[in-house]
């Protein structure tokens, strides 16, 4: 039995033939089951490529990726994902949007019609958890950006995925909404304990949320630094302004600064 849930060994990704199209080069990442890691790095370092290769949406050029003990060769079929843009379906209500994964992922999809009521209750309770009770029948465009992201989070976790991939899910939000959602995400994670890989450019976000923060170099991306965030859970928002966090953020910052120059 492998001790890691997600393991990337010496992964290289090329989009074209020559070396200038190298997006990732010799990437090594390991994530334990139930661990929450954050990946930060200068823009264009291949963070989004990381999302795609771990989920199998993008085949890699060299190396091995294993998720849950299996080598990733084709798109996985259980991963929850959330992006910066809310990507909700505008013709569906909030509730129907959250239910979407249950219509696709097994074993839920098989008995979707039979268990519809139960699933609706499940979706409603998730929406309540993120503070959206009473919004089930609303359409996405009737919600603010922050609310839409909360719906997206619910959609990403309703099928209780063992792996959650988040690509700057709070990037387009204002600071206060973002912080509010950090706490919500932390709460969700502590309750369900999925393995989370969060890609972000917000160092405070990374340090507040993750157990471990990985720094990627600029293109071609590889991991150049790793910091363990030692703070106990649940963390409070003000903790990210305390010395321990501030020092760590400064350290990560200088790392990325260096990575940008090289």
């Amino acid at each position: 039995m492998n001790e890691y849930f997600v393991e990337l060994k010496n992964v290289t990704l090329k989009y074209g033939r020559d070396d200038s199209s190298l997006a990732l080069n010799g990437l090594n990442i390991t994530v334990k089951k139930g661990e929450f890691i954050a990946v930060v790095g200068p823009s264009g370092c291949g963070k989004s490529s990381l999302m795609k290769i771990v989920t199998g949406l993008q085949p890699i050029s060299r190396g091995v990726i294993q998720v849950g003990g299996n080598v990733v060769k084709e798109p996985l079929n259980f991963v929850g994902m959330a992006f910066q843009s809310s990507s909700l379906l505008p013709w569906r209500t909030v509730l129907e949007n959250v239910l979407l994964p249950l219509e696709i992922v097994e074993p839920y999809a098989k008995s979707f019609k039979k268990n519809y009521k139960k699933y609706c209750e499940k979706a409603s309770s998730l929406l309540e958890l993120v503070g959206l009770q009473g919004y089930e029948k609303k359409f996405p465009w009737q919600l603010s950006g922050g609310m839409q992201q909360r719906v997206q989070l619910c959609r990403a976790i309703i099928h209780e995925p063992s792996l959650l991939m988040l690509d700057e899910p709070f990037g387009a939000l204002d600071m206060f909404t973002r912080e509010e959602l950090w706490s919500i995400l932390q709460g969700l994670w502590m309750e369900k304990k999925p393995t989370i890989i969060l890609v972000t450019h917000d160092l405070r976000e990374a340090v507040f949320l993750a157990d471990r923060v990985l720094v990627m170099s600029s293109r071609p991306g590889k991991i150049i630094h790793e910091s363990i965030v030692g703070q106990s859970r649940p963390r409070e928002l003000k903790s990210s302004y305390q010395k321990e966090s501030v020092d760590l953020i400064a350290e990560l910052r200088s790392c990325i600064q260096e990575a940008r120059i090289h």
């Binding site: 989920t55 199998g56 379906l89």
Partner: peptide
């Protein structure tokens, strides 16, 4: 269809037919 949406569905294991029907 927006690439993000496509990725969300593909990572859930959606088939081509499901993609067309649902999105």
């Amino acid at each position: 269809v927006e690439p993000e949406l496509r990725d969300v569905l593909r990572a859930l294991g959606a088939t081509k037919i499901q993609m067309i029907r649902k999105v």
